[in-house]
Write a protein that binds this DNA or RNA. Structure first.
Lengths: 153, 153
DNA sequence: AGTGAGATTTAGAACTATTCCAATGATATA
DNA sequence: TATATCATTGGAATAGTTCTAAATCTCACT
Protein backbone atom coordinates (compact mmCIF):
# COMPACT_ATOMS: atom_id res chain seq x y z
CA UNK A 1 0.00 0.00 0.00
CA UNK A 2 2.07 2.94 -1.17
CA UNK A 3 -0.17 5.79 -0.31
CA UNK A 4 2.16 8.62 0.55
CA UNK A 5 5.24 7.81 -1.47
CA UNK A 6 4.27 10.90 -3.34
CA UNK A 7 2.77 13.39 -0.93
CA UNK A 8 -0.82 14.11 -1.80
CA UNK A 9 -0.25 17.79 -1.17
CA UNK A 10 2.46 17.75 -3.84
CA UNK A 11 0.22 15.97 -6.29
CA UNK A 12 -2.40 18.59 -5.61
CA UNK A 13 0.00 21.51 -5.97
CA UNK A 14 1.23 20.09 -9.25
CA UNK A 15 -2.21 19.53 -10.69
CA UNK A 16 -3.34 22.95 -9.61
CA UNK A 17 -0.27 24.56 -11.13
CA UNK A 18 -0.95 22.68 -14.37
CA UNK A 19 -4.27 24.47 -14.52
CA UNK A 20 -2.84 27.82 -13.48
CA UNK A 21 -4.44 27.62 -10.05
CA UNK A 22 -2.99 28.15 -6.60
CA UNK A 23 -2.56 25.75 -3.75
CA UNK A 24 -4.49 27.20 -0.82
CA UNK A 25 -4.90 25.86 2.71
CA UNK A 26 -8.58 25.22 2.00
CA UNK A 27 -7.91 23.23 -1.13
CA UNK A 28 -5.23 21.19 0.62
CA UNK A 29 -7.40 20.51 3.63
CA UNK A 30 -10.35 19.43 1.55
CA UNK A 31 -8.25 17.19 -0.63
CA UNK A 32 -6.67 15.57 2.45
CA UNK A 33 -10.06 15.03 4.03
CA UNK A 34 -11.53 13.42 0.97
CA UNK A 35 -8.54 11.11 0.62
CA UNK A 36 -8.40 10.21 4.30
CA UNK A 37 -11.79 8.58 4.53
CA UNK A 38 -12.30 6.86 1.25
CA UNK A 39 -16.03 6.95 0.97
CA UNK A 40 -18.40 9.03 -1.11
CA UNK A 41 -19.19 12.12 0.94
CA UNK A 42 -21.51 14.93 -0.02
CA UNK A 43 -20.32 18.53 0.09
CA UNK A 44 -22.09 18.90 3.43
CA UNK A 45 -20.28 15.91 4.86
CA UNK A 46 -16.94 17.26 3.68
CA UNK A 47 -17.87 20.61 5.18
CA UNK A 48 -18.58 18.97 8.53
CA UNK A 49 -15.31 17.05 8.53
CA UNK A 50 -13.20 19.97 7.44
CA UNK A 51 -14.70 22.40 9.92
CA UNK A 52 -13.26 20.40 12.81
CA UNK A 53 -9.76 21.45 11.69
CA UNK A 54 -10.60 24.69 9.93
CA UNK A 55 -13.56 26.26 11.70
CA UNK A 56 -13.80 29.40 9.59
CA UNK A 57 -14.20 27.70 6.24
CA UNK A 58 -17.40 28.40 4.37
CA UNK A 59 -19.69 25.98 2.63
CA UNK A 60 -19.27 27.95 -0.58
CA UNK A 61 -15.55 27.30 -0.41
CA UNK A 62 -16.14 23.60 0.07
CA UNK A 63 -18.24 23.60 -3.09
CA UNK A 64 -15.63 25.67 -4.92
CA UNK A 65 -12.74 23.47 -3.85
CA UNK A 66 -14.50 20.21 -4.62
CA UNK A 67 -15.33 21.55 -8.06
CA UNK A 68 -11.70 22.51 -8.51
CA UNK A 69 -10.58 19.01 -7.51
CA UNK A 70 -12.99 17.57 -10.05
CA UNK A 71 -11.56 19.87 -12.75
CA UNK A 72 -8.06 18.71 -11.84
CA UNK A 73 -9.13 15.05 -12.06
CA UNK A 74 -8.27 14.38 -8.46
CA UNK A 75 -11.74 13.32 -7.44
CA UNK A 76 -14.86 12.38 -9.36
CA UNK A 77 -18.36 13.70 -8.86
CA UNK A 78 -21.05 11.03 -8.93
CA UNK A 79 -24.83 11.11 -8.86
CA UNK A 80 -26.35 7.86 -7.74
CA UNK A 81 -29.87 9.07 -7.21
CA UNK A 82 -31.62 12.34 -6.76
CA UNK A 83 -30.01 14.20 -3.93
CA UNK A 84 -26.66 15.77 -3.26
CA UNK A 85 -23.62 15.22 -5.43
CA UNK A 86 -21.16 12.75 -3.95
CA UNK A 87 -17.42 12.89 -4.39
CA UNK A 88 -15.32 9.83 -5.07
CA UNK A 89 -11.55 9.83 -4.47
CA UNK A 90 -11.08 6.41 -6.09
CA UNK A 91 -9.68 7.09 -9.53
CA UNK A 92 -9.14 3.50 -10.66
CA UNK A 93 -11.77 1.99 -12.92
CA UNK A 94 -14.53 0.73 -10.69
CA UNK A 95 -18.26 0.27 -10.47
CA UNK A 96 -20.49 1.43 -7.65
CA UNK A 97 -22.73 -0.95 -5.78
CA UNK A 98 -25.53 0.92 -4.09
CA UNK A 99 -26.97 -1.03 -1.19
CA UNK A 100 -30.61 -0.01 -1.14
CA UNK A 101 -31.21 -1.06 2.45
CA UNK A 102 -28.32 0.62 4.17
CA UNK A 103 -27.73 3.37 1.63
CA UNK A 104 -24.04 2.52 1.61
CA UNK A 105 -21.96 2.52 -1.51
CA UNK A 106 -19.34 -0.09 -2.25
CA UNK A 107 -16.65 0.18 -4.88
CA UNK A 108 -16.26 -2.85 -7.12
CA UNK A 109 -13.16 -3.20 -9.25
CA UNK A 110 -13.54 -3.39 -13.00
CA UNK A 111 -10.97 -5.00 -15.26
CA UNK A 112 -9.78 -3.19 -18.38
CA UNK A 113 -11.05 -6.19 -20.35
CA UNK A 114 -14.61 -5.77 -19.15
CA UNK A 115 -14.45 -2.04 -19.73
CA UNK A 116 -13.31 -2.71 -23.28
CA UNK A 117 -16.20 -5.12 -23.78
CA UNK A 118 -18.65 -2.57 -22.50
CA UNK A 119 -17.26 0.11 -24.77
CA UNK A 120 -17.58 -2.31 -27.66
CA UNK A 121 -21.37 -2.00 -27.62
CA UNK A 122 -21.15 1.58 -28.84
CA UNK A 123 -22.01 2.11 -32.50
CA UNK A 124 -19.33 3.72 -34.68
CA UNK A 125 -19.12 7.45 -34.18
CA UNK A 126 -19.74 7.28 -30.46
CA UNK A 127 -16.64 8.28 -28.57
CA UNK A 128 -16.99 7.65 -24.85
CA UNK A 129 -14.73 9.63 -22.57
CA UNK A 130 -16.01 7.80 -19.50
CA UNK A 131 -17.98 4.68 -18.69
CA UNK A 132 -19.96 4.39 -15.49
CA UNK A 133 -21.40 1.22 -14.06
CA UNK A 134 -23.80 1.33 -11.14
CA UNK A 135 -25.46 -1.60 -9.42
CA UNK A 136 -28.41 -1.28 -7.08
CA UNK A 137 -29.52 -4.07 -4.82
CA UNK A 138 -28.65 -5.59 -1.53
CA UNK A 139 -25.38 -6.84 -0.17
CA UNK A 140 -25.84 -9.58 2.38
CA UNK A 141 -24.48 -8.47 5.77
CA UNK A 142 -21.94 -11.29 6.13
CA UNK A 143 -20.01 -10.45 3.02
CA UNK A 144 -20.71 -6.75 2.95
CA UNK A 145 -18.42 -6.05 5.88
CA UNK A 146 -15.62 -8.06 4.29
CA UNK A 147 -15.91 -6.55 0.88
CA UNK A 148 -16.93 -3.12 1.93
CA UNK A 149 -14.70 -0.52 0.42
CA UNK A 150 -16.53 2.69 0.92
CA UNK A 151 -19.92 3.97 1.93
CA UNK A 152 -21.75 7.03 3.04
CA UNK A 153 -22.47 7.48 6.72
CA UNK B 1 -43.16 -2.68 -34.26
CA UNK B 2 -46.14 -3.78 -32.22
CA UNK B 3 -46.68 -0.79 -30.09
CA UNK B 4 -50.37 -0.75 -29.42
CA UNK B 5 -51.29 -4.40 -29.75
CA UNK B 6 -51.95 -4.06 -26.08
CA UNK B 7 -53.31 -0.60 -25.38
CA UNK B 8 -50.95 1.31 -23.15
CA UNK B 9 -53.90 2.59 -21.14
CA UNK B 10 -54.83 -1.02 -20.38
CA UNK B 11 -51.31 -1.86 -19.35
CA UNK B 12 -51.37 1.14 -17.09
CA UNK B 13 -54.77 0.28 -15.59
CA UNK B 14 -53.60 -3.25 -14.93
CA UNK B 15 -50.36 -2.22 -13.27
CA UNK B 16 -52.11 0.36 -11.17
CA UNK B 17 -54.74 -2.15 -10.09
CA UNK B 18 -51.96 -4.57 -9.15
CA UNK B 19 -50.74 -1.96 -6.71
CA UNK B 20 -54.21 -1.08 -5.47
CA UNK B 21 -54.16 2.26 -7.27
CA UNK B 22 -56.70 3.88 -9.54
CA UNK B 23 -56.43 4.83 -13.17
CA UNK B 24 -57.01 8.56 -13.36
CA UNK B 25 -57.10 10.86 -16.40
CA UNK B 26 -53.92 12.54 -15.18
CA UNK B 27 -52.04 9.26 -14.83
CA UNK B 28 -53.21 8.11 -18.24
CA UNK B 29 -52.31 11.39 -19.90
CA UNK B 30 -48.86 11.48 -18.40
CA UNK B 31 -48.15 7.88 -19.28
CA UNK B 32 -49.27 8.48 -22.88
CA UNK B 33 -47.13 11.59 -23.14
CA UNK B 34 -44.04 9.88 -21.86
CA UNK B 35 -44.53 6.97 -24.24
CA UNK B 36 -45.31 9.15 -27.24
CA UNK B 37 -42.02 10.96 -27.42
CA UNK B 38 -39.45 8.42 -26.39
CA UNK B 39 -36.81 10.64 -24.94
CA UNK B 40 -35.75 11.39 -21.39
CA UNK B 41 -37.87 14.32 -20.26
CA UNK B 42 -37.72 16.06 -16.92
CA UNK B 43 -40.84 16.56 -14.84
CA UNK B 44 -40.99 20.13 -16.11
CA UNK B 45 -40.87 18.98 -19.71
CA UNK B 46 -43.64 16.47 -19.10
CA UNK B 47 -45.62 19.21 -17.39
CA UNK B 48 -45.25 21.46 -20.42
CA UNK B 49 -46.31 18.74 -22.85
CA UNK B 50 -49.26 17.60 -20.80
CA UNK B 51 -50.59 21.06 -20.16
CA UNK B 52 -51.32 21.48 -23.85
CA UNK B 53 -54.03 18.82 -23.56
CA UNK B 54 -54.89 19.17 -19.90
CA UNK B 55 -54.44 22.82 -18.96
CA UNK B 56 -55.54 22.54 -15.34
CA UNK B 57 -53.03 19.93 -14.29
CA UNK B 58 -50.61 20.90 -11.58
CA UNK B 59 -46.87 20.36 -11.42
CA UNK B 60 -47.32 18.48 -8.15
CA UNK B 61 -49.56 16.02 -9.94
CA UNK B 62 -46.96 15.52 -12.63
CA UNK B 63 -44.44 14.66 -9.95
CA UNK B 64 -46.93 12.40 -8.21
CA UNK B 65 -47.91 10.57 -11.37
CA UNK B 66 -44.36 10.11 -12.59
CA UNK B 67 -43.46 8.68 -9.21
CA UNK B 68 -46.43 6.35 -9.44
CA UNK B 69 -45.33 5.18 -12.89
CA UNK B 70 -41.88 4.50 -11.50
CA UNK B 71 -43.40 2.46 -8.66
CA UNK B 72 -45.40 0.46 -11.19
CA UNK B 73 -42.27 -0.20 -13.27
CA UNK B 74 -43.68 1.54 -16.30
CA UNK B 75 -40.95 4.14 -16.54
CA UNK B 76 -37.54 4.48 -14.97
CA UNK B 77 -36.11 7.50 -13.21
CA UNK B 78 -32.53 8.30 -14.15
CA UNK B 79 -30.00 10.81 -12.87
CA UNK B 80 -27.25 11.53 -15.34
CA UNK B 81 -25.77 14.52 -13.63
CA UNK B 82 -26.73 17.09 -11.05
CA UNK B 83 -29.97 18.52 -12.19
CA UNK B 84 -33.53 17.37 -12.59
CA UNK B 85 -34.58 13.74 -12.59
CA UNK B 86 -35.24 12.39 -16.06
CA UNK B 87 -37.79 9.75 -16.91
CA UNK B 88 -37.08 6.92 -19.31
CA UNK B 89 -39.89 4.95 -20.94
CA UNK B 90 -37.51 2.40 -22.46
CA UNK B 91 -37.73 -0.68 -20.28
CA UNK B 92 -35.47 -2.96 -22.29
CA UNK B 93 -31.91 -3.36 -21.05
CA UNK B 94 -29.96 -0.46 -22.44
CA UNK B 95 -27.15 1.92 -21.65
CA UNK B 96 -27.29 5.69 -21.88
CA UNK B 97 -24.86 7.65 -23.95
CA UNK B 98 -24.67 11.22 -22.78
CA UNK B 99 -23.41 13.54 -25.50
CA UNK B 100 -21.54 16.22 -23.61
CA UNK B 101 -21.67 18.76 -26.42
CA UNK B 102 -25.33 18.66 -27.29
CA UNK B 103 -26.62 17.43 -23.96
CA UNK B 104 -28.65 14.78 -25.76
CA UNK B 105 -29.03 11.26 -24.48
CA UNK B 106 -28.96 8.24 -26.72
CA UNK B 107 -30.10 4.78 -25.77
CA UNK B 108 -27.68 1.99 -26.62
CA UNK B 109 -28.92 -1.60 -26.57
CA UNK B 110 -27.26 -4.04 -24.22
CA UNK B 111 -27.26 -7.77 -24.78
CA UNK B 112 -28.19 -10.13 -21.95
CA UNK B 113 -24.74 -11.68 -22.39
CA UNK B 114 -22.93 -8.45 -21.66
CA UNK B 115 -25.22 -7.73 -18.73
CA UNK B 116 -24.38 -11.17 -17.35
CA UNK B 117 -20.69 -10.46 -17.75
CA UNK B 118 -21.04 -7.19 -15.95
CA UNK B 119 -22.94 -8.78 -13.11
CA UNK B 120 -20.22 -11.39 -12.88
CA UNK B 121 -17.78 -8.87 -11.41
CA UNK B 122 -19.81 -8.69 -8.21
CA UNK B 123 -18.32 -10.53 -5.24
CA UNK B 124 -20.49 -13.22 -3.65
CA UNK B 125 -23.19 -11.80 -1.42
CA UNK B 126 -23.88 -8.86 -3.69
CA UNK B 127 -27.30 -9.19 -5.21
CA UNK B 128 -27.89 -6.55 -7.87
CA UNK B 129 -31.49 -5.74 -8.68
CA UNK B 130 -30.48 -3.39 -11.47
CA UNK B 131 -27.39 -2.58 -13.51
CA UNK B 132 -26.91 0.83 -15.03
CA UNK B 133 -24.36 1.71 -17.67
CA UNK B 134 -23.75 5.31 -18.63
CA UNK B 135 -21.32 6.63 -21.22
CA UNK B 136 -20.26 10.24 -21.48
CA UNK B 137 -18.49 11.63 -24.49
CA UNK B 138 -19.24 12.89 -27.93
CA UNK B 139 -21.19 11.35 -30.74
CA UNK B 140 -19.98 12.52 -34.13
CA UNK B 141 -22.78 14.35 -35.96
CA UNK B 142 -22.85 12.07 -39.00
CA UNK B 143 -23.63 8.93 -37.09
CA UNK B 144 -25.49 10.48 -34.24
CA UNK B 145 -28.48 11.28 -36.39
CA UNK B 146 -28.57 7.73 -37.72
CA UNK B 147 -28.22 6.06 -34.39
CA UNK B 148 -30.07 8.55 -32.34
CA UNK B 149 -32.75 6.89 -30.32
CA UNK B 150 -33.72 9.45 -27.77
CA UNK B 151 -32.52 12.73 -26.39
CA UNK B 152 -33.60 15.67 -24.35
CA UNK B 153 -34.60 18.87 -26.10
C1' DA C 1 -79.38 7.58 -6.94
C1' DG C 2 -77.23 8.76 -2.21
C1' DT C 3 -73.54 8.36 1.14
C1' DG C 4 -69.18 7.70 3.36
C1' DA C 5 -64.33 6.15 3.18
C1' DG C 6 -60.49 6.58 1.12
C1' DA C 7 -57.79 7.89 -2.91
C1' DT C 8 -56.28 11.76 -5.76
C1' DT C 9 -55.44 16.35 -7.20
C1' DT C 10 -54.33 20.98 -6.36
C1' DA C 11 -51.93 25.47 -5.05
C1' DG C 12 -48.79 27.15 -2.56
C1' DA C 13 -45.52 26.94 1.20
C1' DA C 14 -41.42 24.75 2.65
C1' DC C 15 -37.24 22.54 1.90
C1' DT C 16 -32.64 21.01 0.05
C1' DA C 17 -28.78 21.45 -2.68
C1' DT C 18 -26.36 24.44 -5.20
C1' DT C 19 -24.88 28.67 -7.48
C1' DC C 20 -24.31 33.53 -7.69
C1' DC C 21 -22.65 37.85 -6.04
C1' DA C 22 -20.19 41.59 -4.13
C1' DA C 23 -16.89 42.54 -0.67
C1' DT C 24 -12.82 41.20 1.51
C1' DG C 25 -8.44 38.92 1.90
C1' DA C 26 -4.25 36.63 0.12
C1' DT C 27 -0.48 36.08 -3.30
C1' DA C 28 2.75 36.63 -7.07
C1' DT C 29 5.04 39.66 -9.86
C1' DA C 30 6.93 43.93 -11.47
C1' DT D 1 5.56 48.03 -2.12
C1' DA D 2 1.94 48.72 -5.73
C1' DT D 3 -0.99 46.21 -8.60
C1' DA D 4 -3.37 42.77 -10.83
C1' DT D 5 -5.23 38.49 -10.13
C1' DC D 6 -6.90 34.79 -7.66
C1' DA D 7 -9.49 32.87 -3.75
C1' DT D 8 -12.60 32.93 0.10
C1' DT D 9 -16.57 34.40 2.46
C1' DG D 10 -21.55 35.16 3.92
C1' DG D 11 -25.63 35.92 2.32
C1' DA D 12 -28.98 36.22 -1.24
C1' DA D 13 -30.88 33.91 -5.05
C1' DT D 14 -32.20 29.94 -7.67
C1' DA D 15 -33.76 25.24 -9.15
C1' DG D 16 -35.89 21.12 -8.30
C1' DT D 17 -38.61 18.68 -5.45
C1' DT D 18 -41.49 17.48 -1.53
C1' DC D 19 -44.90 18.59 1.83
C1' DT D 20 -49.39 20.08 3.48
C1' DA D 21 -54.03 20.87 3.97
C1' DA D 22 -58.11 21.58 1.59
C1' DA D 23 -60.98 20.47 -2.27
C1' DT D 24 -62.46 16.90 -5.40
C1' DC D 25 -63.24 12.59 -7.17
C1' DT D 26 -64.31 7.50 -7.21
C1' DC D 27 -65.88 3.39 -5.63
C1' DA D 28 -68.48 0.19 -2.88
C1' DC D 29 -72.42 -0.27 -0.62
C1' DT D 30 -77.04 0.88 0.31
Amino acid sequence: MQQTLELSSEVLAQRLADSGLRATPQREMIYEMVLKKRDHPTADEVYARVRADMPGISLATVYNCLETLVQCDLVRAVHFERGPTRYCPNLRPHAHFHDEQSGTIHDVNLTPELLAQIRAVLPPGYDARTVEVTFRGKASPLTSSEHRVAGSE
